[in-house]
């Protein structure tokens, strides 16, 4: 395969990956943020303490997270058809990607929000703030650096899942690496896609860390920002790589 043959393939694949990951990240954040906050609020001693709701949400999140992504994609087919009108292509891949990422992000949000000092919540209550004020003015803004780190981790995980989206004809870098690189023995193309993925992930991780850290510096909370090290993208499925302990355990649970 010559470069002129590879080039359109690769640029299309890059675009497909960005498209799928971009949309599914957006949906995951919009869906996962309230879910994660609810997990904290409904917990014992929370502002909206509701043990039943907490258990139900927690279980749903756990089940969704324990499902391997490829199975989730198949299981969601009829739902995907209902939403997008098709089960094939990029749009069809966004649905399971987003649904797989919502509970993943929700758990990360839960951890981040739980770290917010209870004294701040008390202070806002003492000023006459209601629960919504507490969420909007305290929990989310104070957890923002951690939330950005969580979103970064989610994006990286989604790039990993998106490799499997090729099975529903959605394209993307992972799909190219499998179909051309692995199945057709185009080793060169495979390494190029891997290199591109490595660069993309490094850039995303760097940007995420930078944003989280500069927020931290501004707020200057004592102690360094939570360190999220880079996931090495040796295989197209970043999710499967043996990465640094913390991030990797989170990722591997979902994949």
């Amino acid at each position: 395969m010559t470069w002129s043959e590879m080039q359109p393939l690769l640029s299309q694949a890059c675009w497909d990956t960005l498209y799928m990951v971009g949309w599914s990240t957006l949906i995951a954040v919009v869906g996962g943020l309230p879910l994660g906050v609810l997990l904290v609020l409904t917990d014992k001693g929370g502002l909206l303490q509701n043990v039943v709701a907490n258990k139900v949400i927690g279980q749903v999140v756990n089940i969704a997270r324990s499902m391997p992504f490829i199975i989730l994609m198949v299981a969601l087919m009829s739902f995907t058809r209902w939403v997008t009108g098709t089960t094939i292509g990029r749009e069809a891949a966004i649905v399971p990607l987003a649904i797989g990422a919502i509970p993943f992000f929700a758990r990360l949000v839960e951890t981040a929000v739980r770290e917010v000092d209870a004294g701040l919540v008390e202070a806002v209550q003492a000023m006459g703030g209601n629960t919504w004020t507490v969420v909007r003015k305290v929990l989310v803004p104070e957890a923002l650096p951690s939330l950005i780190s969580s979103a970064t981790t989610t994006v990286v995980a989604l790039i990993g899942y998106s490799a499997m989206a090729g099975t529903v004809g959605a394209g993307g870098l992972g799909d190219i690496a499998i179909r051309y690189g692995y199945q057709r023995f185009e080793t060169e193309l495979m390494w190029i896609t891997v290199a591109i993925l490595a660069v993309v992930i490094s850039v995303i991780q760097f940007a995420g860390d930078f944003a989280a850290r500069s927020l931290h510096r501004r707020g200057g909370r004592s102690g360094p920002a939570p360190k999220l090290r880079l996931l090495k993208a040796e295989k197209p499925a970043a999710a499967g790589t043996p990465g640094p302990a913390e991030v990797n355990t989170e990722v591997s649970k979902v994949a």
């Binding site: 000092d117 701040l120 008390e122 202070a123 003015k137 803004p141 104070e142 927020l215 707020g219 200057g220």
Partner: peptide, 8 residues
């Protein structure tokens, strides 16, 4: 412990 919001 003052309880000021560090983000503001």
């Amino acid at each position: 412990h003052f309880n000021l919001l560090s983000s503001r």
